[in-house]
Structure formats: C-alpha cells, structure tokens
Amino acid sequence: MANNKSAKKRIGINKRNRLKNRYYKSSVRTLIKIFFQDLETYKTSQNPEEKEKIKKTLSSIYSLIDKGTKKNIFHKNAAARKKSKLAAYLKTT
C-alpha cells in the first residue's frame, strides 16, 4: 500500500491510464471482429453495399488505431502492422 502522497497519486494515474488503454485496445479488437464478420458475409454475397460497410468499418478501425498511436497506447510499428494486415485481408477478397 502507498505510504506517501506521490505514491497514492501514481496509483490513481496508473488506474486512469489502464482504463484508457483498455478502452482503445478492446474497441479495436471488437471492431476487427466485426470487420471479419462483414468480410465473410461479403465473400458469400458479393454485394456492393456489403463492400461499403466493410470500408466504413475499416476506416473506423484505422481512426481508432491512429488515435491510440497518438496517445502512446499502441507503438507506431504495431499500429502500422495491424493496419497493413487488415488492408491485405480486404485486398484478397
């Protein structure tokens, strides 16, 4: 347990940062799952509306990853790797 004021403050700051990091990381994971579900439905239907839905989801994933990178939640190379893998999956369909 913290014994001085600065240690107590650091505990609060760490908790705040952990929640912020968890929000970004879980949101990105959830959107990626939605992206892959949409990708599977597009593979079976080849519907242009589905393609637009996929692109919109991919755009929101990119936005969230970029915001997380700007706030030092994701490393820049890890963010680039995630984005390029998603783009590659879209390109193969």
Rank of each mutant, 00 (worst) to 15 (best):
11 I>N: 06
12 G>Q: 08
12 G>L: 06
13 I>C: 07
13 I>S: 11
13 I>G: 05
14 N>R: 11
14 N>E: 13
15 K>T: 08
17 N>W: 06
18 R>H: 06
19 L>E: 07
20 K>W: 10
21 N>R: 13
21 N>F: 10
23 Y>P: 08
23 Y>N: 09
24 Y>T: 15
25 K>I: 14
25 K>H: 09
26 S>N: 10
27 S>W: 00
28 V>P: 01
29 R>I: 00
29 R>H: 01
29 R>P: 00
30 T>S: 05
30 T>Q: 02
30 T>G: 04
31 L>K: 09
31 L>M: 08
31 L>H: 03
31 L>V: 03
32 I>P: 00
32 I>N: 02
32 I>S: 00
33 K>Y: 11
35 F>V: 02
37 Q>G: 07
37 Q>S: 11
38 D>H: 10
39 L>M: 13
39 L>W: 02
39 L>Y: 03
40 E>R: 11
40 E>F: 03
41 T>Y: 11
41 T>M: 12
41 T>E: 15
42 Y>C: 04
43 K>S: 10
43 K>I: 09
46 Q>V: 10
46 Q>P: 09
47 N>L: 04
47 N>P: 05
47 N>F: 08
48 P>T: 03
48 P>H: 02
49 E>D: 10
49 E>T: 09
49 E>Y: 07
50 E>C: 03
51 K>Y: 08
51 K>W: 04
53 K>E: 08
54 I>W: 01
54 I>G: 00
54 I>E: 01
55 K>W: 02
56 K>T: 06
56 K>E: 07
57 T>W: 00
58 L>W: 01
59 S>G: 14
60 S>N: 05
60 S>T: 02
61 I>T: 04
61 I>A: 06
63 S>T: 06
63 S>A: 08
63 S>W: 03
64 L>G: 04
64 L>V: 09
65 I>A: 06
68 G>V: 00
68 G>Q: 01
68 G>K: 00
68 G>F: 00
69 T>L: 05
69 T>S: 08
69 T>D: 01
71 K>W: 05
72 N>S: 12
72 N>A: 11
73 I>F: 03
73 I>T: 07
74 F>R: 02
75 H>Q: 12
75 H>F: 04
76 K>P: 06
77 N>F: 10
77 N>M: 14
78 A>H: 14
78 A>N: 14
79 A>G: 11
79 A>R: 03
80 A>S: 14
81 R>S: 15
81 R>K: 15
82 K>P: 13
82 K>L: 15
83 K>Q: 14
83 K>E: 12
83 K>L: 11
84 S>M: 10
84 S>R: 06
85 K>L: 14
86 L>D: 01
86 L>A: 05
86 L>R: 03
87 A>K: 15
87 A>C: 07
88 A>K: 13
88 A>V: 08
90 L>K: 05
90 L>M: 12
91 K>F: 12
92 T>G: 02
93 T>I: 15
